[in-house]
Design a protein around this nucleic acid. Structure first.
Length: 618
DNA sequence: CGTTTTTGACCGGCGC
DNA sequence: GCGCCGGTCAAAAACG
């Protein structure tokens, strides 16, 4: 393109020189033309040189990617062999569907939304480091993989833990039978406001002064997720208990306060509130870090918030390569904010897909058109799953008093946009409960079976006094589902995207490198040890007959429907689909991305935090 | 009867 | 210092 333009200008110069060549008065003009010609040639040379450099760079990137991929697959295969031996010793069950799907895995894509392996000032390891890490002992690698598989932490902080904690924890993995038994481990560093710290110290024995001091420094970092959801509360896999409800200023919808009840000492809180401007939007704000193993079903949301928090922390307190292109923007609410001019490449993303047996790579996730706040004492990062990217940069449109009162918000947009990598167009389709391919079900609406999921009760949105947003305006057909074809095409497009590949390479860097770091700073790895997660499957999909037929034991995170308040909304974008039995240890690498349902608010904004029909992944 | 939700009271931070 | 506001507590109520 540029070359052709330059060529035309050269030809033009030649033509002009020929037509005016004999005139002495035009001699000076000819000289000028000649200068132009020379400069154009020089410019052409520069462009060619630049093109050459870019080609070299591209070649290098592709080469690095392929090299890393080969290393990664080798490790996976080694693990697969080892795992197969173990499986043979423990169980003879083998899911034929998995066998079949393993052949297709090369075509599948798994999105990882964050591993809680923050490294603080060392977010990204270079390729050399990664290769070193790859060459670490096989046992270490197994530990790493196990940690990857066994759950994630909702990390809102950057933890600096001594190397070796991972090893210690990894050797003390609870047995599968005690998957969700509380693991007595030291409290991780948590972001906790002073008042909460004091209160926590009063009521909880295992608080630590040093940790408190650390927590005090890490002030309330929050991750707020906006999603269209017709249920009182998004299903994030954790157990929550409501402990309060308030009518916050500026929003007539009550704000519900929940605390995590998976572990009695878990400090994680969350707030759930409808958006006043669009009641179909549910704003869920997470705060704190789980101090217990997370069920697999909770890892999607946890890793998402973890990644977002990582981004937030990175943008506000540390300098990272990924934030090179942050640029200042107009301050919000008196606090300075920054906007990421391009896609932010998260580091330390969690791999929750428990698929180390499968040759699936885990690219990092991009939050397109995102922005990040920096200097405020109560930073909130908002992951916007509802709005187009252009809207996401409109900070002022958030009405959540939590974020609007004192603090600017960071808005990350997950919704559809053709221009952004890993964003898919919304197309009608009905989700297939038996979907076994690696679709990004982005913008899909789960096919709820009210009768089954709600225990035959009247759905909450059919109840008196409940909102009903199930109308065409709120829920256009175009957003109801995705076609399988479109999704497949989108998946291909994504995987073919050079940015995706670059992200993949970076993800591999983290994926392989984090564990070998001995868990240094990788608190998420240390604490995300859901024993037996290796044989757990994740299926948050409503209407999934497999899930409903499955028999789960108690103490399970409530990823099933609520018996009290009706169906709930799953994390809209990351739902790993597996049709395997929940106990055979075989994993699909398939990942299904669900959209939130547009719609109805709860009758009062208070959700049923825990599921009466709790099931356990075992 | 145990667990969960509801809801008014209370506390602390912040702005004026 | 006062009032507003967000957040939490805890007794009562509701639920299964």
């Amino acid at each position: 393109m540029e070359n052709s333009i330059l060529g035309n200008s050269i030809k033009e110069a030649h033509t002009q020189m020929e037509s005016k060549g004999g005139d002495e008065e035009n001699a000076s003009i000819d000289i000028n033309k000649e200068d132009k010609l020379i400069s154009a040639k020089v410019e052409m040379g520069e462009v060619r040189e630049e093109n050459g450099k870019l080609k070299l760079l591209l070649t290098k990137l592709v080469k690095d990617y392929q090299s890393l991929q080969m290393h990664f697959f080798d490790i996976l295969q080694q693990d697969q062999l080892a795992g197969a031996n173990i499986n043979e010793a423990t169980t003879d069950q083998k899911d034929p569907i998995h066998e079949k799907n393993e052949e297709e895995l090369a075509e599948l894509v798994s999105l990882c939304l964050g591993r809680s392996t923050f490294k603080g000032d060392q977010p990204n390891k270079d390729v050399d480091d990664e290769k070193k890490d790859i060459s670490t002992s096989k046992s270490d690698q197994k530990k790493k993989d196990k940690n990857f598989d066994e759950g994630l932490s909702l990390g809102l902080d950057i933890r600096y833990e001594p190397a070796g904690s991972l090893t210690t924890e990894a050797t003390n993995l609870p047995s599968p039978a005690s998957s969700f038994e509380e693991v007595k481990e030291e409290e991780p560093c948590e972001i906790w406001p002073p008042s909460k710290v004091l209160r926590t110290m009063r009521t909880r024995d295992n608080s630590n002064n040093n940790e408190v001091s650390q927590q005090s420094q890490m002030k309330k970092a929050r991750v707020s997720i906006r999603a269209r959801c017709d249920t009182p509360m998004m299903i994030d896999g954790c157990q929550w208990r409501k402990y309060g409800q308030k009518i916050a200023k500026g929003n007539p919808c009550p704000r519900a306060y929940y605390r995590c009840t998976v572990s009695p000492t878990c400090p994680v809180r969350k707030q759930v509130q409808r958006c006043v401007e669009d009641l179909s939007i549910l704003v869920t704000t997470y705060e704190g870090t789980h101090n217990h193993p997370l069920p697999i079903s909770a890892t999607a949301m946890a890793s998402t918030t973890c990644a977002a928090a990582s981004m937030l922390q990175s943008g506000s307190s540390t300098s990272q390569p990924g934030l090179d292109r942050i640029s200042s923007t107009a301050p919000i609410s008196g606090a300075s904010t920054t906007t990421i001019a391009s896609n932010y490449n998260f580091h330390g993303l969690n791999n929750f897909s428990s698929t180390h047996q499968n040759p699936i790579v885990h690219p990092q996730f991009y939050f397109p058109n995102s922005s990040i706040s920096t200097s405020n004492s109560h930073p909130t990062i908002t992951l916007d799953l509802t709005a187009p990217p252009r809207i996401s940069q409109n900070f002022g449109r958030f009405s959540n008093p939590t974020t609007s009162r004192h603090y600017p918000t960071t808005s990350l947009n997950f919704s559809s946009a053709n221009s952004s990598p890993l964003q898919l167009p919304l197309v009608p389709q009905s989700p297939n409960p038996h979907n076994t391919t690696g679709y990004f079900n982005y913008g899909t609406v789960p096919n709820y079976n009210r009768n089954q999921s709600n225990g035959g009760k009247q759905p909450f949105f059919d109840q008196p006094n409940s909102y009903n947003y199930m109308n065409d305006q709120m829920m256009p057909n175009s957003q109801q589902s995705l076609t399988a074809e479109t999704l497949a095409a989108a998946t291909k497009a994504i995987t073919a995207n050079p940015k995706f590949q670059t992200a993949l390479a970076a993800a591999l860097t983290n994926f392989v490198g984090n564990g070998a770091n001995g868990g240094g700073g990788g608190g998420g790895v240390r604490e995300n040890q859901v024993a037996g997660a290796d044989n757990s499957a994740l299926c948050l999909k409503y209407g999934d007959s497999d899930r409903q037929k499955s028999s789960y034991t108690k103490n399970t995170p409530p990823y099933t429907t609520s018996s009290q308040n009706g169906i709930r909304c799953a994390p809209s974008y990351l739902i790993k689909k597996s049709n395997s039995s929940l106990s055979n240890g075989q994993q699909e690498g398939n990942l299904v991305l669900f959209p939130p349902l547009p719609s109805p608010a709860s009758k009062s904004g208070s959700a049923s935090p825990t599921d009466k029909n709790n099931h356990v992944l075992k």
